[in-house]
Design a binder for these strands. Sequence first.
DNA 1: AGCAGGCGGTCAATGGTTTTACGATCGGGG
DNA 2: CCCCGATCGTAAAACCATTGACCGCCTGCT
Lengths: 181, 181
Amino acid sequence: MGHSADGDSAATDFLSFADIAVDTTAERLPGIDRSAMQMVLLLHRVASSIVYDLESTVHRPAGWSWSAFRLLFTLWVAGPRESRQVAHLSGMSRAAVSSLTKTLSASGLLARRSDERDRRAAILSLTARGADALETTFRAHNEREARWASLISEDELATLNGVLTKLARAAQGQEWISRRA
Amino acid sequence: MGHSADGDSAATDFLSFADIAVDTTAERLPGIDRSAMQMVLLLHRVASSIVYDLESTVHRPAGWSWSAFRLLFTLWVAGPRESRQVAHLSGMSRAAVSSLTKTLSASGLLARRSDERDRRAAILSLTARGADALETTFRAHNEREARWASLISEDELATLNGVLTKLARAAQGQEWISRRA
DNA sequence: AGCAGGCGGTCAATGGTTTTACGATCGGGG
DNA sequence: CCCCGATCGTAAAACCATTGACCGCCTGCT
């Protein structure tokens, strides 16, 4: 009987599907790397779930898209920066930053001035109102992050963060990785 | 002097920014949950990087979007399913599945028939060509997953998968989580 | 100084996803 | 038996992000 392809859809949801997918695939395609597959599947699905949850409960109600939040947060942490760098640090394209900047500066959340030394460059920074709004929203954001984190033990959380940090650091040097812009 | 806001942008990239962000935030906003913040930041950034890399080196060249791949893969694993279920299992909206279905069935990769019992429902399934194409693409996909996985040790990988699995399972029952559609 | 090549930001076009609304269908209660 | 509400898939519209082309500016070389 086993949990074959059809049948038990009752307990199968977006997150638990990863288990089934790995088992099925390993069976049907011998030679694939099972753990690697599991890692990517889980990372993607867990991250997506968290982002969806945060966006729909915290950021959309506040009138921001997930990207807008990331942009503002990046500025809040890194301080005034060239548009190019903000794009890089927040993980979006230069065009996306340019477009978001128009909206957010119209709302008075960020300011945009051109660099004196290099007149091509635009320097973005938060306004006082922007910093204020970000801090308020971030608190709500962090409270919800804490709920997610509480689903595992403190030790497990520390372990998770440790391994993810190592993975992120190791990825930094790799030439073969295709990166944004 | 420490690594304050401006200055050392040299070694700061998308992935390593997480460290700086956590430190800066913890300093400026006492009372936030540091580990929870780190977890979400890392999960999002690592997952994004992997997805971007896979999409741009494997799926786009094959003519598929990341979502198209996920849809086909879901069908390949789960077998013929109602459109509704496919959306749920692959983590997208019903509308997105409907839209993708049009494209993919035009390419002859998947078939769409209506359920006999419930004539509202549409049942999606892979064609032979679709299954073939998926298996070929998936091998390339998995090879690249393996490169990512090789950035950490086998033990660490097993640990990572263990914790992520636990997190995914724990999330399953939670009522407070906002889920897609 | 002048020019060639490269880089930063923006615009237009494109593709894909979500939201909203709707027609068709199912199922249960009066 | 017939509504009524709920569900399924889809179409239309809005939104958002990416790619590619472009213009202006910087820099190094001659």
